Amino acid sequence: MEDLVKANVGEKVLFDKEIIGLVEKVSENAVIVQIIKNHTKREFDNNKTVISHRMYKIMAKN
Rank of each mutant, 00 (worst) to 15 (best):
44 F>M: 05
26 V>Y: 01
55 M>G: 10
7 A>V: 14
25 K>W: 05
9 V>Q: 15
2 E>A: 10
58 I>S: 05
47 N>F: 00
12 K>L: 07
33 V>A: 02
12 K>Y: 03
16 D>M: 12
12 K>E: 10
13 V>C: 05
7 A>G: 11
12 K>R: 09
36 I>C: 00
53 H>P: 06
43 E>Q: 13
35 I>N: 13
41 K>V: 00
32 I>V: 09
53 H>V: 10
46 N>Y: 14
13 V>A: 10
34 Q>P: 11
26 V>D: 07
42 R>Y: 12
41 K>T: 06
26 V>L: 03
4 L>Q: 06
44 F>C: 09
36 I>V: 03
55 M>V: 11
36 I>D: 01
6 K>F: 07
14 L>M: 08
29 N>Y: 15
17 K>F: 08
9 V>R: 15
5 V>P: 08
10 G>A: 01
45 D>K: 10
24 E>C: 03
41 K>R: 03
54 R>V: 07
11 E>M: 11
29 N>E: 15
24 E>Y: 00
24 E>S: 03
30 A>P: 01
4 L>G: 04
12 K>M: 04
10 G>Y: 00
7 A>L: 12
49 T>G: 11
16 D>K: 13
12 K>T: 04
59 M>K: 12
10 G>N: 01
46 N>D: 14
58 I>G: 04
36 I>K: 01
59 M>T: 13
42 R>L: 09
19 I>N: 03
32 I>A: 04
34 Q>W: 07
26 V>A: 05
3 D>T: 09
48 K>D: 05
8 N>F: 02
38 N>Q: 08
46 N>I: 14
45 D>F: 01
49 T>W: 06
53 H>A: 08
21 G>F: 01
55 M>H: 15
5 V>Q: 13
19 I>L: 03
42 R>Q: 12
62 N>H: 12
21 G>P: 03
29 N>S: 15
7 A>E: 10
5 V>C: 08
55 M>W: 12
4 L>C: 04
11 E>G: 13
39 H>C: 02
8 N>G: 10
61 K>W: 11
25 K>T: 13
20 I>G: 04
31 V>H: 01
23 V>P: 00
41 K>D: 05
39 H>V: 03
44 F>E: 07
5 V>E: 11
16 D>T: 09
3 D>E: 08
